[in-house]
Design a protein around this nucleic acid. Structure first.
Lengths: 160, 160
DNA sequence: TTTACTGCAAACATTTTGCAGATGT
DNA sequence: ACATCTGCAAAATGTTTGCAGTAAA
């Protein structure tokens, strides 16, 4: 049995943490301190992040979670669809927490990394048309949008 | 001045090679044997490829082009928009030759890697709507479609 | 002749893995 | 108790870089 644990010091609702914890549990994974720690690290961030960010956060906050464990946990969470892996315009790999488990895409601020989930962009008819024209059987697609969030648009100069 | 050189042994039209050679020339890059070799390697392939593929092809065909040169050339060609970098569903980085210099996206076969360029998917209104709703200023997007090409659909079993 | 380019090997960054011991259930 | 996890450190990848020599223009 699991008790919901949210040690986050940020203003985030515990639901994100709970959601991840429950997903892990439901999938039969053991709930360990390290995993809870990684989940907390993820939920404390509120945009796209790289593994290096989590490693740095962990060290800074003196949370014990080995690099390998962070990678392993991220892999599991990605498999569960609780987190998604995406590719920044510069080619780096990063991750985002997903608010919903349904099919969706992400819009990421290229300045602050803040990201929002976009559901139903209306790609279906486009995909159907492409499939019809090309004869390909399209079974997956990636759509990632990048730009400046409202806040960063106001701060014109380079990131802090 | 440049002479068009197409040493490709494949059935591909020389135009792709010429196109790349001319792009390099137009941008002021020197035309060297290594670069010609890398271009030839790229044009001999007809789908998405990883750098490792080119390295392997080069060695197999006994073409001299150091690994570093392949990376460097690919970087230049990417900058010129003659080649595009994309991310496979499995997370690997790969490249595709672009038929056109105009804005477009790619549809890649997950079995044989064959890829076709897609122009004008009709994303503009979608982007506009998202921008309006979210307040983000969207300045770039990535759309990559994956599936099975007509040929691979017929061959049901795992790749050769 | 001048400056860009190449090859090579070393340096780097990132992610994976083997294994002995720790720990959930 | 027993299988799953973790940490660690080594290894495997993938990509970049410094430099002395080579070759375009």
């Amino acid at each position: 049995m699991l008790s919901a644990v949210n040690t986050s010091t940020s203003g985030h609702p515990g639901s994100a943490v709970d959601d991840m914890v429950q997903s892990l549990d439901a999938a039969g994974y053991r709930m360990t301190d390290s995993r809870r720690a990684v989940i907390d690290l993820i939920c404390t961030r509120d945009g796209a992040f790289e593994t290096a960010d989590l490693v740095a956060d962990a060290r800074r906050r003196k949370i014990e979670a080995a690099r390998a464990t962070i990678f392993r946990t991220l892999e599991i969470l990605t498999g569960l669809g609780v987190v998604e892996r995406l590719d920044l315009p510069n080619g780096d790999h990063s991750y985002v927490r997903c608010d919903s488990r349904a099919h969706h895409h992400h819009l990421v601020c290229t300045r602050c990394q803040r990201s929002i989930d976009l559901e139903d962009l209306g790609m279906t008819p486009i995909l159907a048309k492409v499939a019809r024209r090309t004869g390909y059987k399209i079974d997956r697609h990636r759509v990632e949008l990048f730009g400046l969030c409202p806040t960063c648009q106001k701060r014109a100069s380079p990131a802090p």
